[in-house]
Amino acid sequence: MIEVVTSRNALLYKDALHDMFHLRHRIFVERMGWEALRKSDRLERDQFDTDDAIYLLLTEDDGKVVGTHRMLPTTKPHLFSDVFPNLCAVKGVQRDEKILELTRTCVDEEVLDRPTMEKARKRLMVGLFEFCLRGGYEKFTLLTPTDLLFRYLLIGLDIKPLGMPVDMDGNKQVAVIVKVDQQALDVMRMALGVPETQVHYVGAPQGDRLVLAPDGAQQRPLEAAE
């Protein structure tokens, strides 16, 4: 399942967050070679891992963290605003309470076998849309390879570029903004073959869900299945 961790419930997820930072170090530094992020404690954290960050953690039944997203509010400092504004040069850096920035998406490529890994990626993508929709977020921005952009366009997602593609990590990547609505979640579920609800707000008091929503955003009712 996928769990949502914010500063409000982080205490309940101390071990899981530790595992997540370690997973990020193993994937981004040790596998992908982002040496600037290397840490002696093998926990990859940067200046954006603050109380404002929201983490989606994909966990196995025994609680092991096997995948993650980091979401940053675009009204606070985030990568596009502080590190890569040039990637959004055409449309400008997007800043809105209802827009999140997605970074640090990864699954545990060292532990999962290939089919499980593919499934994990799909569950994380569907979970992302579930989380945004439930939390009242209308869009998210991210840097994505152009061939992935094409695949998601084919599925029927509303994705618009913010700037021109650049060469990064050995392929062409482009900053984009993705619209989130019920239709987007439905097509993602169908195209990726993930019909089940992924995001579960266990470990957090019911009321704490509200803290995930920006001011004025509409809360969606929990689905009957939960």
Binding site: T146, F150, L153, P165
Partner: peptide
């Protein structure tokens, strides 16, 4: 680069 990106969107 412009033509590349336009082509991706056109193709999709």
């Amino acid at each position: 680069a412009c033509l590349h990106m336009a082509s991706i969107y056109f193709h999709a």
